[in-house]
């Protein structure tokens, strides 16, 4: 259940962006990632989610422990809110979508087509998806974009409940969620501009 990262180097477009990154995330803990735009937060989350290979280092996590939420929510405009959530619950082998609907107060929107939702409502639906994955380690990339203050509070509650139930969360965000969480600024780990070790084009330098 614990996610441990040792000496990780991640790359975007073949160029190293973050180097020598080490941390560990135990059950019940949350970690907030900070750093300026382009510093590699998204790249780090994508690497940890297994979407792209790391250049170097070690990622230790249980099999199928990580759930990932990207900038885009993977919602289908022509499906209703329930159908969208039901689909992801089925894919992840979960049955009950009601707690997720309740946690993000999606009940009034139940039968609306996702295409007719506002940006904030879509985002809430996207975040509710995390609850139906049933996975302990959440990776959230800018989860609060286009959420209003109430929705942010709902989200913070959901994360708190998740942590309370023994889950953990790695969140790249710029706003204060009011969580009792450590903050990791990735700036010191930025790879040097001329970094070459492990880069995909290393052989050509």
């Amino acid at each position: 259940m614990t996610l441990t990262i040792r000496d990780l180097c991640v790359a975007r477009g073949g160029l190293p962006v973050l180097e020598r990154l080490s941390f560990s995330l135990a059950p019940g803990q949350a970690l907030i990632l900070r750093g300026p735009n382009g510093s590699g937060k998204t790249t780090l989350l994508r690497t940890l989610a297994g979407l792209q290979p790391s250049l170097n280092g070690e990622i230790v996590a249980g099999e199928d422990d990580i759930a990932y939420a990207a900038h885009s929510d993977g919602l289908k405009a022509m499906l209703t809110v329930t159908e969208n959530l039901r689909f992801w619950a089925d894919v992840f082998g979960q049955r009950d979508i009601e707690p997720a609907m309740a946690a993000f107060s999606l009940d009034p929107l139940r039968d609306r087509l996702a295409g007719t939702l506002s940006a904030g409502q879509k985002r809430r639906l996207g975040l509710a998806r995390m609850l139906v994955t049933g996975r302990p380690i959440w990776m959230l990339d800018e989860p609060t974009v286009s959420l209003d203050r109430d929705a942010v509070a709902l989200f913070a509650d959901a994360v708190r409940a998740h942590l309370g139930a023994g889950g953990s969360a790695l969140i790249a965000t710029h706003i204060d969620l009011g969580l009792d969480a450590k903050v990791l600024d990735v700036t010191p780990f930025r790879a040097a501009a001329d970094a070459r070790a492990g880069a995909s084009d290393e052989a050509f330098l």
């Binding site: 990932y68 990207a70 885009s72 929510d73 992801w88 894919v91 992840f92």
Partner: peptide
Amino acid sequence: LDWEDGTLDLLATSPL
């Protein structure tokens, strides 16, 4: 379509 709305990313991280 699934590429544009990010569904493929999420599917790739799913147990399927």
